[in-house]
Write a protein that binds this DNA or RNA. Sequence first.
RNA 1: AUUGUUAUGCAGACAAUCGCAUCAAUUUUGAUGAGGAAAGUCCGAGCAUCAAGAGAACUGGGUGCCGAUUAACGAUCGGUGGAGGCGACUCUAAGACUAGUGCAACAGAAAUAAACCGCCGUAAAAGGUAAGGAUGGAAAGGUGGUGUAAGAGACCACCGCUUAGUUAGAGAUAACUGAGGCUCUGUAAACUCCACCUGAUGCAAGGUCAAAAGGGCAUAUGUGCUUGUUCUCUCACGCCCUGAAUGAACCGCUUGAACUUAUUGGCAACAAUAAGUCUAGAUAGAUGAUUGUCUAAUACAGAACUCGGCUUAUAGCAUAACUGACCGC
RNA 2: GCAGAGAUGGCCGAGCGGUUUAAGGCGCACGCUUGGAAAGCGUGUGAGGUAAAAAGCCUCCGCAGGUUCGAAUCCUGUUCUCUGCG
Length: 122
Amino acid sequence: MEEKNYQHNKIKIDHRLKKNKQFNYIFRKGIKYHSKNFNLYAVSSKFKTYKIGYSISKKEGKANKRNLLRRRLKEIVRKNQLVKDNYNYILQAKNGATLLTYSEIEHQLINLFKKHEENKSF
RNA sequence: AUUGUUAUGCAGACAAUCGCAUCAAUUUUGAUGAGGAAAGUCCGAGCAUCAAGAGAACUGGGUGCCGAUUAACGAUCGGUGGAGGCGACUCUAAGACUAGUGCAACAGAAAUAAACCGCCGUAAAAGGUAAGGAUGGAAAGGUGGUGUAAGAGACCACCGCUUAGUUAGAGAUAACUGAGGCUCUGUAAACUCCACCUGAUGCAAGGUCAAAAGGGCAUAUGUGCUUGUUCUCUCACGCCCUGAAUGAACCGCUUGAACUUAUUGGCAACAAUAAGUCUAGAUAGAUGAUUGUCUAAUACAGAACUCGGCUUAUAGCAUAACUGACCGC
RNA sequence: GCAGAGAUGGCCGAGCGGUUUAAGGCGCACGCUUGGAAAGCGUGUGAGGUAAAAAGCCUCCGCAGGUUCGAAUCCUGUUCUCUGCG
């Protein structure tokens, strides 16, 4: 019974960044990658899993627009398996990213994470 | 067929695959999962804390035609008066400047008070007068007549104002009759007066884990307190810091002035009764992606303690009642 | 989520019912001064529309209504900006 619970917990690891501290740390120390509508901050971490946070300023739109964008970002990251272990990320939206369609966002994000991959290999 | 006016409803549905949150089961399944405004935070409540309570005076804040509804309200409904529209109908912070005070620039002779021009009068003055002129947002009730030296509510008719009575009404008020002859400029979203209401802070409230031990201040003619100020009385005997953290978890957290349907009462807001239902509860914060079918399906927009309103944003479709103009009979 | 403050010429900033929208400073333009500059002194200077130009007229104190004879100022709604609360 206990083993099962343990396994269950192991499957459900929290991949979210939660604390303001963590966000500030990554904003300061992270390696930055830019596209037209998004910034990616990446920092290597001592943990084996990854964590990712999404940052959308209030200037980008009203609450429901921001919510929609965040959900789409989460969906794209999950579906394309863009994120690698041992890293912490922040995805920041800018310049009217809420106006983009799903496919446009997907295109930009894949390119962004490609840059990150190339940088890592060097 | 057209033109408006008012009211109401919907705010996509179904299926498949992958994915999220909560709760059940339990080992891979099932159920449920944002709005009409969830928004603005403009009002009113519940709930919590300020050790507890009673009372008085002053101050501050709010509301302001009448009646009803409501847990309550600055909300709602039905009326009255006023304003707009040919009309259906819509809008209305609408007590009192005859308690007192303030303000009213410029213009104008004069701004709450009277005479510049004028008119009458006369030899000329004195004197009488406020019709006409000019200014202004406002100029001494208005229009027409009688009257007169010229004029004037001096007198008359109509209209307006103030006021008394009668009738109708629950009342605001309305209608009628009489009186005053008009004394009384506007402004209270100026101070103020009158009537009524009103403690403060907001779930980031607040509580549990949270105790030991140590330290400081005060120790009754004292301290504390009812969170705008002061006072009276009852009352309590302690308060603060370290421990104790830029911490985690849990509670608060969703069954409620709840929702749906029916009946009854009421013009209506709404209320009562009966039956049925349980319907988000996250905490970097749960609803997305792809595809198909139907369709007018697009807009504004995302719960964060919970309710009742108000205000603002909003595509398209549908329904009902009524208004005007035109055509036909 | 809750609570509070503000918005005035190109910039800062006073004014809080009254006369032509606006004190003062910075800035800008021109002149004086100087061999030349800086500093100093003096004069002028908001924007848009109308207009050939000048003069004049109209609109503008975040935006939209209302009260008032009259609103940058008072009241209501709204938009944006900023601050505090664990």
